[in-house]
Amino acid sequence: MSGLRISLLLAWVGGLATLDAQVIPRRPNDPIPAQLESMYERGLTYLVRSQNAEGSWNDSMGGEPAVVGLCLKAFLAHGDDPNHGPYAETIGRCIDYILSNQKDRNGYIGNSMYNHGFATLALAEAYGMVDNPKIAPALQQAVDLILSAQERNPAGAWRYSPESRDADTTVSGCQLVALFGARNAGLGVPEESIRKGLAFLSRCRGEDGSYGYTSAGGGKPTLTAIGVLCLSLAKEEGGKAFDKSVDYLGENLDYRDQHYPYYFEYYMSQALFQSSDDLWNQWNDKNLRYLAVLQRTDGSWPGDKGEAFSTAGALLSLALNYRYLPIYEK
């Protein structure tokens, strides 16, 4: 490992020592409920067994770098040794697949900014944890593309392609979280880029605190969770507008997105974990019961976007209980 990566890894390990001091309580001698651990391990086992030799999955969206990135994050979030642990081979294949889908010319991963953003975040989480010298230059290229796409965008944000001239909250939120992940990993991310991205999101926030897709109208819990998470990661919590958004999420703890349920699970868990201990505890209990009913006997979760996406999304919505990933710390 390079000196930089060793330093980052030591900082990450050192950060784990402070977790017991966080506000959210842990059960003495039993920090993770047995049911959750069983569900999580069964989900990972499904992903291991169903991964193909190239490192992706053979379902409807399992070949998308974004989905492979989410699966990679699900393994890293469990806290096993990514280089020698039980999932090291699967993790290595995920990384190789993401790298194989990056264009040498400009660092673009996949064929959409959704793919690029989630894959970039996955590389950022793997950097300093996985012993692979190819990650660092690939991550830098991926971050550079996010920044250059923003510079060309009149809205100061992002949409479907690096050349997009408009923006929406889902793609923009994805790129912002990837930038936060890269910054946590030690890469230089201009503060101006964060400010511009957050400014776009704020223009999509309605008076009731909810976030819309491309404007302040038509707010939805999924989009609001993205907005709250981005502000929280930027340490911009507080203020009436932020509080209204958190209250809006609190009023929708029983909401389930009909079209992208696991996408909602993924963002809602992170947003509440970062913004409200009380709401996250309520949500976490509900979410654990909800996902326990849906998990299949083979360990997967069902969904029309493919089992790899559904299973990774479900697992990552539970992964806040482990708090191993830097992006999952407070």
Rank of each mutant, 00 (worst) to 15 (best):
M1S: 13
L8A: 02
A11R: 06
G15R: 00
A17R: 02
T18V: 02
D20H: 14
Q22C: 08
Q22A: 09
R26K: 14
I32P: 13
L36R: 08
E37R: 15
E41C: 09
L44P: 04
Q51P: 05
Q51Y: 04
D59M: 03
M61F: 08
L72H: 03
A74W: 03
H84C: 10
H84W: 10
T90E: 06
C94G: 14
I95Y: 06
K103M: 04
D104Q: 03
R105C: 13
N106Y: 06
G110I: 07
G110T: 10
G110F: 06
S112W: 11
F118T: 12
L121I: 11
L121R: 12
A124V: 14
A126R: 11
Y127D: 07
Y127S: 14
V130P: 09
N132I: 13
I135H: 06
A136R: 02
P137G: 07
A142S: 07
Q150M: 02
N153Y: 05
N153V: 04
P154L: 14
W158N: 09
Y160R: 09
S161H: 07
S161A: 11
S161V: 04
S161K: 07
E163N: 09
D168F: 04
T170Q: 03
T170K: 01
G173W: 00
A178M: 01
L179D: 02
F180K: 05
A182H: 03
V189P: 01
I194P: 02
C204T: 00
S210G: 14
T214Q: 15
G217N: 13
G218A: 14
V228K: 02
L233V: 00
A234Y: 01
K235L: 06
G238D: 13
G239V: 09
K240A: 09
F242T: 13
D243H: 12
D243Y: 07
V246E: 11
L249V: 13
R256T: 11
R256C: 14
D257A: 08
Q258S: 08
P261Q: 02
P261L: 02
Y262S: 05
Y263R: 11
Y263C: 09
Y266G: 03
Y266M: 04
S275M: 05
V293S: 08
L294W: 07
R296C: 12
T297Q: 15
K305L: 10
S310W: 13
L315C: 02
S317K: 10
S317M: 08
L318F: 12
A319C: 11
N321R: 12
N321G: 09
R323M: 12
Y328D: 15
